[in-house]
Amino acid sequence: MQPPNCGHCLRPAQTSRIAKELLEQCRPINLIGGRGQGRARLLDDLMGIDPDIFWLHADLKEHRYRFAGLLETLWDQTGLIGYPPPTLGGLVDKLTAGNRPVCLLLHHFDAILDNPDPNLDAGFDAAFLEALNALKNRGVSLLCVTRRAYDPYGMLTRSGERRGSTLVLEPEALAPLSRAEIRAELDRCLPGLDANDLDLLAASLLRHRHPLSFLGYVRRRLRDGDVAAWPFDERLSHWEDKYRVRYGGLTTADAVAPRHRISSWYRALFGCIKPLLTGPIKQLRRRLAGKD
């Protein structure tokens, strides 16, 4: 394989190495990184490396309630005619019929793990993970993105049973962005700023908890002409404060998520113990009614 062209990549060195390991070694990778660090960007950069590769991408957060929707999304990216196969294995059969390399990229993979949500599609079970594990034997590369290492996760069935998996993924932490990588990205996306302003923004991104998210925020503010009459350093400080207030604190989604998770765990747990309690409760009611 020729060295990948990664001039467009946010993390060119890491992206190039991952691409070679995926395509030459079929290394099953667990890409680990937090929100706003550029996980989705790395997937986009991979898909821009070589158009002759079947780069199939899906976000499991969007498809966790409909397994068929995942297969439809992947099928649409192949360009093949007809209807999508009903199983992941059937999809792989279609793709491996030719000699074109195939790589499956699954973002937010942890959306289907440790998740007792009763609405989670039944297709996302231990058998699905085992089918992913078999991809390497078919010559198909796999990369799954999670916020923390895959190993501690389990898979909860609707009955509340926790199952392990035979899925083997090799951890690959998202590398911290270097100043040179940030500056190269700014040169690509904000060529209108002068060198001093670019240096100020690069320094801000280098210390930011969510550099890619904040960069997107700054680009929108620049596009909208927000406080355009201010000196750039004051504008940047203003945007840092506004971003911190809007995204840095506890959001509504953050507040609702723990309550939803606790509620889901309660429903799953009660579903397990309800059959055990039914008999004793009936006996207690009979005694209180004087029938026993």
Rank of each mutant, 00 (worst) to 15 (best):
P231T: 04
R246K: 12
R39C: 02
H107I: 03
G98C: 14
D254T: 06
S264I: 05
A111Y: 01
L198P: 02
S263E: 11
Y217H: 03
D44P: 02
G154A: 09
L167M: 03
F232G: 01
E170D: 07
T251Q: 07
T73P: 08
P152N: 09
A68H: 06
T15G: 06
T157H: 09
V92T: 05
H63F: 15
D233G: 00
P191L: 02
R221F: 00
A97Y: 15
A180K: 11
L23K: 03
L88T: 09
R285L: 15
D233F: 11
R287L: 15
R147C: 11
L142S: 04
T96I: 08
D224P: 07
R41T: 05
E130P: 00
L113G: 02
H107A: 12
D224G: 06
E161D: 12
R259G: 10
G154R: 11
D50E: 07
D117M: 13
L104V: 15
L200C: 05
A175V: 14
D114T: 03
S178V: 13
A134N: 12
K291Y: 10
R207W: 10
L193I: 08
A122G: 03
D224A: 08
I281V: 14
L174H: 05
E72G: 10
P191S: 12
G7H: 05
R27T: 04
G139L: 07
R162L: 15
W239G: 00
P84T: 12
V245S: 09
L190V: 07
T15R: 02
D224V: 02
F270G: 04
S213P: 00
A195D: 13
R235N: 04
H107T: 09
P280M: 07
A229L: 07
H107L: 10
D50T: 09
L169D: 02
L269W: 15
L104W: 13
K136I: 12
